[in-house]
Nucleic acid binder design. Structure first.
Lengths: 131, 131
DNA sequence: CTTGACCTTCCAGTCACTGGAACCTTTATA
DNA sequence: TATAAAGGTTCCAGTGACTGGAAGGTCAAG
């Protein structure tokens, strides 16, 4: 399989695959006579695993850990679950931060007329508000 | 005021102030005889404005727009309100994405025993799941 | 024979800082 | 007075995870 083909099937960009190779997340692909990278089904599975883990918010370094766990037949499932729950906590913190921002902006906009006049409580609050 | 003093009062790092100057968000500060940057109360107000806007999730380029609007006495408050509501929408999209991740991870962890055994539905799903 | 779609490498840019080196100035203390 | 700590200065590099683009090689089709 060429890189474009495997990229398509895994749902990632060819450039991303080369990037993953460059940072050691995946081993260097074998090359054909013409220098093209050559992928096999196992590589596709790995890339799909990576794509899914990334989509769940795991950083590349964490995906590396997950891959190691995946390949380790003597792993403890508690290690995997710990990573998952830690990620949920991290996501919760991010959501909370975003919700706080949203609340603050909504509070500011509530009293803004949003018309052709210059008076604007949003700017007033940014300038000196207790917000 | 030295940079450390104004940084303290505005709630930003001295390095951040120099960075803002370097990217043109604030004008180059006047210098004292010894080469130190010298800030006045107006600069402090500007930096506080910037700090608050950044805390609300506005990018530096957006803060620049807000500053321009703030200084423009012939602005329309609708322009400010539009930026605020656009930012709320952006935050909403981020929250939704994070919540989707969280749901997916929680779904995966639900069936994981999290003990000393290797069997792990989280890895199973990442490997080939319909997740 | 050429066009277009692939592939290759390498460098630079994104965003908003932050760390660190190497150096100078001011202030406080022994 | 010496010196050390705390502050200031500049400049360069790194962060994360790609992405864009240049410059070039390869391959399949018309």
């Amino acid at each position: 399989m060429n890189i474009g083909e495997v990229a398509n099937q895994a749902g990632v960009a060819p450039k991303t695959i080369r990037y993953y190779e460059s940072v050691g997340l995946i081993p260097a692909a074998t090359r054909r006579a013409n220098g093209y990278r050559d992928y096999r089904t196992a590589d596709l599975h790995t890339l799909r695993f990576i794509q899914r883990a990334r989509a769940l918010g795991f950083a590349v370094a964490e995906v590396e850990e997950l891959l190691t766990l995946w390949r380790n037949k003597r792993r403890k499932s508690s290690a995997v679950k710990a990573m998952a729950t830690a990620k949920i906590d991290e996501i919760d913190r991010k959501i909370a931060a975003l919700q706080a921002m949203k609340r603050a902006i909504r509070y500011l906009t509530a009293n803004c007329h949003g018309d052709t006049r210059p008076e604007c409580p949003i700017l007033d609050e940014l300038a000196g508000g207790r917000a």
